[in-house]
Design a protein around this nucleic acid. Structure first.
Length: 492
RNA sequence: GGCGCUAUCGUCUAGUGGUUAGGACAGGGCCCUCUCAAGGCUCAGGCACGGGUUCGAAUCCCGUUAGCGCUACCA
């Protein structure tokens, strides 16, 4: 079995595309087939030279390896469509010769006018097939003379076309609504339809798994295969991914909110935010596919073993960031501490901190249950790395049902007690609890000011462990700063 | 507008004629607890509507409605 993922390099690698790639990849790996990557760059206007790199990087991040395609080659190349132009021209010629297609000399202006008139009538009608009945020999002469033209496919005018989709079953279209679609543009570059069909055949693709937005062009594709005298591959249209709002296809753009947060839609952004490839794969696999009534967490290997087309959903799926975050958090917690530490280091370094592995390894147990994305660790663990704590208000130091005097007492007694002990988790806890008791305050009221003093925040990783990792010197210094801040604020 | 696809908790889904309609995320509560998490227990929440077929429909058929997609010399 041979399947392909055939993206168009027009922009950033989108999660919708990643899902399509993943289903093809899982299908190939499950059946021991080949996964082919083909670049469909026939749209010169929207071509983006960075897109290919984004795509390749994204596939590598997700660990979706391709057996044939760019960089790896293969026996059916080239795998970039603009390097195959001669092949399409030759095949287009065959269609022309067989009378299955015709040259159309209608100008863009005429087409526009046609559309305008249709709209005036409240219709949407397409091309009027004015050139369909031109004498082929005369048309050939005009083309020879250099007259600009496109090549259109001759769709049947009457009756209906029934096509088969492996997921949806038979689908029937009245031929009257089908268009004489352009196969070859006036610049000699084929449209998607021609190039795609020709390549899928020549590359011996056995199963086409693509997005649902293509079902309406399936009749054209099937007629193309027939016109060439080819057997079409098994066609399967995957359910679309919808926006979290449920309104429309998943957005192709991501905008940064004023606070810098993003709702990622590009694979690159998910990677930058610290989504684990194993979580992405697992989540994406469940978007339009399921294994049974209980199992959701599945390794790459399990996914490969279990993936079948039969269990692919026909209905569209709404993207759910909460579920992805949950899953990513789960996978983060499953990571061995050394592994997690290694993955965290780049994020800390990007924040500008000296993050040696040893230190990160100490921090990992304190934060692994508190992050959903690797990048979250930066905000959670900042106080371990920062030389100077970000400014906070003295009022933050005051515990619940307490006042400045209580905070001050807790800090002063805490500092004194901590100064006298060996800095281990157990000793720290014992010392702090002891002081709380002596002061006649609740343990929480004792811990709160110290937490804020060492982390600069009301919410932090576990206090005793944090103190231990921070070390005696830094801890006492920060408590000292808090005392000074509190004294200053109380107007002394 | 036309054509096509789809329709089970808010969301992802299990379910293929007989089930107390199951699970997960999100939400509520309780437990654990130094904050926040994580974890455990638990509650609430659904077969779009209307007709058939059948002894019996979430499951099969038809219609309605709704959502989405396509309707380019873009893919």
């Amino acid at each position: 079995m041979r399947v392909r993922y055939a993206p168009s390099p027009t922009g950033d690698f989108h999660v919708g595309g990643a899902r399509t790639a993943l289903f093809n990849w899982l299908f190939a790996r499950h059946h021991g087939g080949r996964f082919i990557l083909r670049i469909e760059d026939t749209d010169r206007k929207r071509y983006n030279p960075q897109a290919l790199q984004w795509l390749l990087d994204g596939l590598r991040y997700l660990e979706l390896d391709w057996d044939e395609g760019p960089e790896v080659g293969g026996g059916y190349g080239p795998y970039v469509q603009t390097e195959r132009l001669e092949i399409y021209r030759e095949h287009c010629g065959r269609l022309l010769e067989a009378g299955a297609a015709y040259r159309c000399f209608c100008t863009p202006e005429r087409l526009q006018e046609l559309a305008r008139q249709a709209q005036q009538r409240g219709e949407r009608g397409g091309y009027d097939r004015a050139c369909r009945n031109l004498d082929p020999e005369e048309a050939a002469r005009r083309a020879e003379a250099g007259e600009p033209h496109v090549v259109r496919f001759k769709m049947p005018l009457e009756g209906e076309t029934t096509v088969h989709d492996a997921i949806r079953g038979d689908i029937t279209f009245p031929n009257a609504v089908l268009q004489d679609t352009v196969l070859m543009k006036s610049d000699g570059i084929p449209t998607y339809h021609l190039a795609n069909v020709v390549d899928d055949h020549l590359m011996e693709i056995s199963h086409v798994l693509r997005g649902d937005e293509w079902v309406n062009s399936l009749p054209l594709h099937i007629h193309l295969y027939r016109a060439f005298g080819w057997e079409p591959p098994v066609m399967a249209h995957l359910p679309l991914i919808l926006n979290p709002t449920g309104k429309g296809k998943m957005s192709k753009r991501e905008e940064r909110a004023p606070d810098g947060s993003v709702r990622p839609v590009f694979v690159r952004t998910f990677q930058e935010l610290g989504y684990l490839p194993e979580a992405m794969i697992n989540f994406l696999a469940l978007l339009g596919w399921s294994y049974d009534d209980k199992t959701e967490i599945m390794s790459r290997q399990e996914l490969i073993e279990r993936f079948t087309l039969e269990r692919v959903q026909a209905s569209p799926a709404v993207w759910n960031y909460d579920k992805l975050d949950h899953m990513n958090g789960y996978y983060i917690r499953q990571l061995a501490p050394e592994d997690l530490a290694g993955r965290l280091v780049p994020f800390f370094e990007k924040a500008g901190w000296k993050a040696d592995r040893e230190k990160v390894l100490q921090i990992v147990p304190l934060i692994r249950e508190r992050i959903k994305r690797l990048s979250d660790a930066v905000a959670v663990a900042d106080f371990f790395f920062l030389e100077k704590l970000p400014p906070y208000d003295a009022a933050e130091l005051i515990p619940k049902k307490g006042d400045a005097a209580m905070a001050l007492a807790a800090l002063e007694r805490g500092r004194e007690a901590l100064g006298k002990i060996e800095f281990t988790r157990e000793a720290i806890e014992a010392a702090l609890r002891g002081e709380a008791e002596k002061l006649g305050i609740k343990a929480g009221q004792m811990f709160h000011p110290i937490r804020v003093a060492i982390s600069g925040r009301k919410v932090s990783p576990p206090l005793f462990e944090s103190l231990e990792v921070l070390g005696k010197e830094t801890s006492l210094a920060r408590i000292g700063e808090a005392i000074a801040k509190l004294r200053g604020a109380s107007g002394a």
